[in-house]
Structure formats: structure tokens, C-alpha cells
């Protein structure tokens, strides 16, 4: 279980009347294995900031992030990095390919960073499930935005993490691929018992979620 406890992210402004503002304010949240949580909200509402804090990439100004009994931000950088590598699968917004590696090498990377050889069969399985198995030896520069996005999803899943945190995973995808990706993520929660959080403002995603949260000006509310 991944828990956010009273998370806040406060930024300081250089000008203006108020000298600081909250991008995320006092958010508590519990993500459970086997569930797909959807996080919606307008752009600028703090969704991505919350996701980065949950991913161990952005230290909150207040509050804690707990993965089971581990307080993420109490760990030294090396241990936190290792935890991110072993237990979290993050799909960031935008391009996230390592350009000098092929698609296959990108997907193998999480396991290789652990010092493993990398599981080619597993990588192929995920790439095939996402419909880009024929691109294994291509370089990221040759791929379209949607293909890159699917590669990032395959890479996040290939490390076999406990938690999957995805920021607009269907943003660049057509309807057919959107459905394929969403059902794949849904299955990894229901069948493999993973904890999944999707940031989206795609209404098509709603049927795939177990719970739906909404961010508004940094505050979180759960929707019925």
C-alpha cells in the first residue's frame, strides 16, 4: 500500500503579494493493491506534482509518503533510488526515452540497473501486448509520440514493480490503443495485484478506475 500523509508542496514566489503558494496542500491518500485509482483535474491543479512526490522524485515540504512501512523521504538517495528502481514503475509525461538505446534496450534498462541481465522474453511480452513488438531494434528518434508512450509503459511494467504511477499514459494515443493500454493497466491491478494510479483527464478512462480522485487548486477530494 502506498500512502500519502498530509502531503504539501509549497513553492516560494519571487514577486507578488503572497510570498508563497501551495501546489499541493494537505493531501492524504491511500492506494491499495489490486485497485486502479484515477486522478483527474484541470491542468495546473497539482496532479503531476502529487505524482512526482508519490514517485520519490520530489521531496514534499510537509507530510510523508509511506510505501508499506517505509518512509520514502527518510531514505538516503541511494536507497530511495533503489526503491524506485525495484518497487515503483513510473510513466512520466512527455518523451522519456534514453535516445542512445534501442527500444528493447530501453525496456530492459530497469532490470539491468538492478544488475540483472535483463529479461528479453518479458520485454517482448510487454511490447507485444502494446502492439510495438516490431519496433524492438528501432531507435527512439524513429518512433512516433504514441509509440514512445507505449514504450515507456512497457518499460515501467517490465521491471515488475509493486506500484505503477502513470501521468497521462493515453495522452498521445488513438482510441484503439487507449483502450488497449487502459485494459492492460487494469489487468495488472486485478490479475497481478499491482497498485495503479493514473493521472488523466480522459473521460474514457473512467470505467477502468476503482476510485476516482479529483484535484482542485492543490486540494484532493474523492468522488463517489
Amino acid at each position: 500500500m502506498l500512502r500519502a500523509e498530509n502531503l504539501s508542496m509549497r513553492y516560494f514566489r519571487k514577486t507578488g503579494q503572497a510570498n508563497h503558494f501551495y501546489a499541493v496542500k494537505d493531501v492524504s491518500l491511500a492506494l491499495r493493491p489490486g485497485e486502479v485509482a484515477l486522478l483527474t483535474g484541470r491542468s495546473g491543479s497539482g496532479k503531476t506534482t502529487l505524482l512526482h512526490m508519490l514517485s520519490g522524485l520530489l521531496k514534499p515540504t510537509e507530510g510523508r509518503v509511506m510505501l508499506e512501512d517505509t518512509d520514502l523521504y527518510a531514505l538516503p538517495d541511494a536507497d530511495l533510488s533503489r526503491l524506485r528502481n525495484m518497487r515503483l514503475g513510473v510513466i512520466p509525461q512527455g518523451r522519456s526515452a534514453v535516445d542512445t538505446l534501442t527500444v528493447l534496450e530501453n525496456v530492459l534498462l530497469p532490470r539491468q540497473l538492478r544488475g540483472e541481465k535483463g529479461d528479453v522474453d518479458e520485454a517482448f511480452r510487454w511490447l507485444a501486448a502494446l502492439g510495438i513488438a516490431d519496433l524492438v531494434n528501432a531507435r527512439p528518434a524513429e518512433l512516433s509520440g504514441g509509440e514512445l508512450r507505449r514504450m515507456a509503459i512497457a518499460r515501467a511494467l517490465a521491471g515488475d514493480p509493486e506500484v505503477i504511477l502513470a501521468d497521462e499514459p493515453t495522452g498521445d494515443l488513438d482510441d484503439e490503443n487507449t483502450a488497449a493500454v487502459l485494459s492492460l493497466l487494469r489487468r495488472s491491478a486485478t490479475e497481478d495485484g499491482k497498485t495503479v494510479l493514473l493521472v488523466t483527464h480522459d473521460s474514457e478512462a473512467l470505467p477502468y478506475g476503482s476510485r476516482v480522485y479529483r484535484m482542485e487548486s492543490g486540494a484532493l477530494s474523492e468522488q463517489a
Binding site: S55, L57, D77, A78, L80, S81, R82, L83, R84, N85, M86, V90, P92, S96, A97, V98, L109, P110, L113, R114, R155, G159
Partner: peptide
């Protein structure tokens, strides 16, 4: 991205 994937 490398940091995201767990490089310290």
C-alpha cells in the same frame, strides 16, 4: 529519466 528509473 535515468533518475526516474532508479539511478542514484
Amino acid at each position: 529519466v535515468l533518475r526516474l528509473l532508479g539511478v542514484s
